[in-house]
Nucleic acid binder design. Sequence first.
DNA 1: TATGAATGAGTCTTCATTCAT
DNA 2: CATGAATGAAGACTCATTCAT
Lengths: 223, 223, 223, 223
Amino acid sequence: MSTRIPKAARPRRAGALELRKQPAQQRSRTTIEDVLTAAAQVFEAHGYAAGTTNRIAERAGVSIGTLYQYFPNKEALAVALLERHLADGMRRMADWVARCVAEPRGLHATLHVFVEGMLDLHAGRPRLQHILLEETPLPPRLHDAMLRAERDAAKIVAGLLRMQPDVRRKNLEQASHLAVQTVEALTHRFAAHPDQGLSRRAFATELVAMLEAYFASDADCRE
Amino acid sequence: MSTRIPKAARPRRAGALELRKQPAQQRSRTTIEDVLTAAAQVFEAHGYAAGTTNRIAERAGVSIGTLYQYFPNKEALAVALLERHLADGMRRMADWVARCVAEPRGLHATLHVFVEGMLDLHAGRPRLQHILLEETPLPPRLHDAMLRAERDAAKIVAGLLRMQPDVRRKNLEQASHLAVQTVEALTHRFAAHPDQGLSRRAFATELVAMLEAYFASDADCRE
Amino acid sequence: MSTRIPKAARPRRAGALELRKQPAQQRSRTTIEDVLTAAAQVFEAHGYAAGTTNRIAERAGVSIGTLYQYFPNKEALAVALLERHLADGMRRMADWVARCVAEPRGLHATLHVFVEGMLDLHAGRPRLQHILLEETPLPPRLHDAMLRAERDAAKIVAGLLRMQPDVRRKNLEQASHLAVQTVEALTHRFAAHPDQGLSRRAFATELVAMLEAYFASDADCRE
Amino acid sequence: MSTRIPKAARPRRAGALELRKQPAQQRSRTTIEDVLTAAAQVFEAHGYAAGTTNRIAERAGVSIGTLYQYFPNKEALAVALLERHLADGMRRMADWVARCVAEPRGLHATLHVFVEGMLDLHAGRPRLQHILLEETPLPPRLHDAMLRAERDAAKIVAGLLRMQPDVRRKNLEQASHLAVQTVEALTHRFAAHPDQGLSRRAFATELVAMLEAYFASDADCRE
DNA sequence: TATGAATGAGTCTTCATTCAT
DNA sequence: CATGAATGAAGACTCATTCAT
């Protein structure tokens, strides 16, 4: 167990977090895909620490040596998996933007589509996301990338909402950031513990209501 | 001679998750406290997995044997730490209720006090809370206790808000549950990554605004 | 990160008492053999409890990891060793039967050959056998196997003796069982403490005499 | 676990195997008795290795410190227990001799009484005897004492049998030694595994028959 | 390139024994 | 004398990673 802490002492091979090579061979592509799929399954089933690389290799139907041919260490597997998730999220974001621009709608509908998209994004493998995000010691690079993605998303949301007439909130960028984080966080929670006696539909409705009320109200914070 | 009774067969020592004994001696109390403090520091610094019991004992200035005299296993340390956090949260909740009842205020102020309380609660050791909550394999008992606490909190919030005249939202209990989760989640996030260019003050203000708008708006969800 | 799956919960790895794999590679066969030889030596020298797996690995000239590649736990080493002994005993038994059938002899000679075979069987590593049999917590499977082997042996002995004309004892099966146990027990004792001022030859002679007298006398137990 | 091998390195206090003192106080006598009783129970229930001194002290209702006041180490407990067993056996032997001399009987009855006595001796706590004898690393002194006792017993048996008219065996001393060992060994086995579908009565009868036949036959070993 | 046997540092945990009170 | 908290050496076992074939 114990995740073999990266041991700063042990000389870290350069570029430890990158794929070792990108051999364009088909076999390789397939292999990488197989390994990643296996890693997802194994991490989801056992958690990050208990998800041993040997088990992953076995499940992928390759030898442990082959696994290490493409991934320099265990962490790299998690990173690759998370990067895909990130990319997926950004694609969805782009879709959302496109849809919003193509067929403009009111604030409510706009938020609704956004929330549903996020729910879909996390619906897939909530436990895996959780494990990757919380149990895994991620390199700062990844962490930063996630924060940046969130910030970018906030900016996009702000831009889109700015065009809505019933948005009265000031400092839209800040508000959007809070909104994005809220959706992220609640969406994760919901995906992880859906047992709370709250249907997905009801959850989405309620969340949209909160965001809508937030953006529609003005910000003269009497404090 | 060991005979090493096969792990699986050996009956899980009774009360594995409790302190072993509660010897009322002074030295003991101090020792337990020292160990717990050390555990908090070590977990915070290295994470749960890498926070080895030996390191904890060393940091606490006691032998590993002493540590195991009071805690039957590593998990028990995390559980003890988390139980304290839980108790602390409930105490704060009670304080908040008392304050709200003693000197009633408007919706805005009420929410503000609540959010500030939560922020304080998590301000202490955000990373530790995170590690305990996410990286640690908690026994179901603890997990359930946390969910129950959240549900209870939601009920209390609902009860308190029901008395506010400007609350127009229907299904207050459900809404409160969402609100509690939102505050929990965002508050954790903020405590964990305060680097977002958002002062604590601003963050609290914004969050209060969102909740206020949510509760003050009515729920006829045009969907 | 370890997450250290709580021992008790972790499913006893399948086939805990079997070799992990039987990779047919040459190196492996040698390695297994080396480990087993080392285990025999170490157990014999230190006893089961004090015979640590690390010591065994060291003596075998392999790393502790390699040892555990082939044997899931310490017990498995003892079991493997004992199974060999059992198999050896059964082979000898078969040889004895073959010899008895091939060139029939009188009662005395028959018993003599039997006793000598048993003495040979235990002559090898008496202390090891003793340790394996008495100090080691064997799985029920093995224990049962040994009892069954003893019972089988008794049956075979009974069958063989039934053909001897000078055998007058009734209830031959019961008597054979007692005889087998006697030989087993005394043979162990003699092998373990040969210092009793009794040569092996004398011991065998005496034991044969006892058994011969027993079988040759009739059983009308005046009690 | 692991019996903390006596560690030759650790400076062994002189007289490690004796009681520390023999304070004639009543309290002490009772305490010693309690501890020994507890030790017997704990060893019987858990085996020697798993029978921890702390558990013994707890069961005896004294502190671990007190236990060590009277017994210098764990081994001393086993030794004390075994010495009692030995003394008990010698007492029985003496009784047997007395009975044999007081009211002389034939060979069969004499042997019968002997065997029954041995069975009684081991009937008490067969598992405990087994544990003490086999699982416990005994000091040579004890081991020698046991061998000596056996040799003495053999001599006594020889002396007694010499007076029986139907004893025709030569070298009575040697034969007696074998007989004593046989009874010892089989009696142990029977006490340990009485499940063999052989009543105690039948077992005793059979064993007596074997011994009787042995002693009654003459020894001109045609080999 | 693929393989998989081998590695060994590192983990949790136990328990005989001591010694200050 | 009794106590029991403290000690810490030692053991079984895991798993990320390497490297010879």
